[in-house]
Design a protein around this nucleic acid. Structure first.
Length: 477
RNA sequence: CGGGGUGUAGCGCAGUUGGUAGCGCACCGCGUUUGGGACGCGGGGGCCGGCGGUUCAAGUCCGCCCACCCCGACCA
């Protein structure tokens, strides 16, 4: 077993995160620098994320497919911004089967190019549109500074790629999928997110416009948790994705792409985690209820086991785990499962057998504070209600925390102060110079221009010029 | 790639003026324990990052490499 205490978040948030990911067995370091192994407990969480998203993708008319890992290097070069954005972080295969390849292959950093190539083959007529495809897969980006889940050389994600007849349709798709991400984040992961538009300097390489869901982590830094891009006709032109319209005129398609990655696991950890460890949202938690039998001797054991068996059948609708390890004490198990973030714990001991009760502990109130004694009868509906309540309270708590750490600086000096301890929400004249100046002075970047903002105008907090949009500035992961 | 740091058991560390390696946790066995991180006894485990040098003798001194971590230029 691991050592007893994690560093606290206040002491060292980065170290808290690193140790927690390892000790909760979410992931581990792989032999290659910057690569991670996602362990079964972490992958189970990812599978629940996948399910929640995939259901939504299907409901909005998308189908899954699989495109290859290897892409001809020349493909990347067909879109100018795209190649400039990605070339520094490409892994390139130059030898295959012992022979030097005539054309090097890149390990996909994202799949716009191959998918664009295929779409050009498949799309002939307006009747073929829209094409709505998603792929679940992995990509490689040769990052310099890595951190488990948040930034690794290889990561797992989904990338949706769609082609449309009109710009408007493609823009609608971009926003539709941003809504899907926000709905997923808020309602499944209990992670409050802000939907917004990336500044031109922060957008995806090759996009006309990128939108994002931004979340605030427990140290107040921002995390881009999902993105959706309107690609205009950039890739359609680079790959000749064309169709004949109703008037028999050849047109370029309008395309989009959108992605959410295993980074989101990091978002969940850093949004809800506390000094005891992980706190997983009930709807996504691999284990929703852990049951811990407590007994001193064989007589007690058989009586307790009987209750546990009954619980097992009554709680069939939930993801449960019975921790019947004999080599560790109940006290150890309490701490262990709290560290792993299981939302609800049920303890069954001799006293409960006698009184017809159970001890129920909520993870969102760690330690003895979250423990209450409840009757065995009606446990299934009690569990359902409690999980639901935990889900709600996690979202509420994270939202309160976020809003308490968004500031409204009145001038540039205040902005510089505020971004050291939270986010700034300020008028921005939309000039890249002001954006760059803030980054230079504070390390905080623009996160997004939120979509939901009241119209109006003010003066740019940096230069004092007229501004019609407010933007979030924050340090980010 | 620039600045700083660290390499000794799975992890965290100690190792004195050079004398052939130890502690805590984890792991294995037995017993007692078990309602908030149990205890006793007994075990297993090391090319001391690598190569070379000095020396009768190097974890320790010298040189050169290598790896990793932290901080600065890029990113879901």
């Amino acid at each position: 077993m691991a050592e007893e205490k994690l560093p606290t978040r206040a002491d060292d948030f980065a170290e808290w995160y690193n140790q927690l990911v390892i000790r909760a067995e979410m992931a581990d370091y792989a032999p290659v620098r910057g690569c991670m192994v996602v362990r079964p407990y972490g992958w189970a969480l990812w599978e629940n994320i996948q399910q929640a998203l995939d259901k939504r993708f299907k409901a909005t008319g998308h189908m899954n497919a699989a495109f290859p890992l290897l892409i001809p290097k020349s493909f990347l070069e067909k879109e100018k911004e795209h190649v400039e954005g990605f070339s520094p972080e490409l892994a390139i295969v130059t030898i295959g089967g012992g022979e030097i390849l005539e054309e090097p292959l890149i390990v996909r950093p994202t799949s716009e190019t191959v998918i664009g190539y295929m779409y050009a083959k498949w799309i002939k007529s307006y009747r073929d549109l829209p094409v709505l495809i998603n792929q679940w897969g992995n990509v490689v980006r040769w990052e310099l500074r890595t951190k488990l889940f948040l930034r690794t050389l290889e990561f797992y994600w989904q990338e949706g790629h769609t082609a449309h007849a009109t710009a408007q349709e493609a823009q609608e798709e971009t926003l539709r999928m941003l809504d899907v991400y926000a709905d997923f984040a808020i309602n499944e992961a209990a992670v409050p997110v802000i939907k917004g538009i990336k500044s031109p300097t922060e957008k995806f390489a090759g996009a006309i416009q990128s939108t994002t869901i931004e979340a605030m982590m427990g140290d107040t830094r921002a995390l881009q948790s999902g993105t959706s891009h309107f690609l205009g006709q950039n890739f359609a032109k680079a790959f000749n994705i064309q169709y004949l319209d109703v008037n028999n005129t050849l047109q370029h398609c309008w395309t989009t792409s959108w992605g959410l990655s295993t980074r989101f696991i990091g978002a969940i950890i850093m949004t809800h985690g506390d000094d005891q460890g992980l706190v997983l949202p009930p709807r996504l938690a691999p284990i929703q209820v852990v049951i811990i039998p407590i007994y001193k001797n064989d007589v007690e054991r058989s009586a307790v086991t009987e209750v546990v068996e009954k619980l097992k059948s009554e709680l069939g609708a939930f993801r449960i785990k019975i921790d019947d390890r004999t080599e560790v004490t109940p006290g150890f198990k309490f701490n262990d499962w709290e560290m792993r973030g299981v939302p609800l714990r049920i303890e069954v001991g001799p006293k409960d057998v006698e009184k017809g009760t159970l001890a129920l502990s909520r993870r969102d109130h760690p330690g003895r504070a979250g423990k209450s004694f409840v009757p065995q009868t009606g446990i299934a509906s009690n569990v359902a209600d409690t999980l639901d309540d935990i889900q709600k309270s996690l979202l509420a708590r994270a939202t309160v925390f976020r809003d308490a750490n968004i500031h409204d600086p009145q001038n540039y000096e205040e902005l510089k102060e505020v971004v050291t301890k939270g986010w700034a929400y300020s008028w921005w004249c939309e000039s890249p110079e002001c954006e760059a100046r803030v980054k230079e002075d504070t390390k905080a970047s623009t996160r997004c221009i939120p979509i939901d903002q009241t119209s109006g105008s003010g003066t740019c907090v940096v230069c004092g010029e007229k501004a019609t949009k407010k933007v979030y500035y924050a340090k980010s992961y």
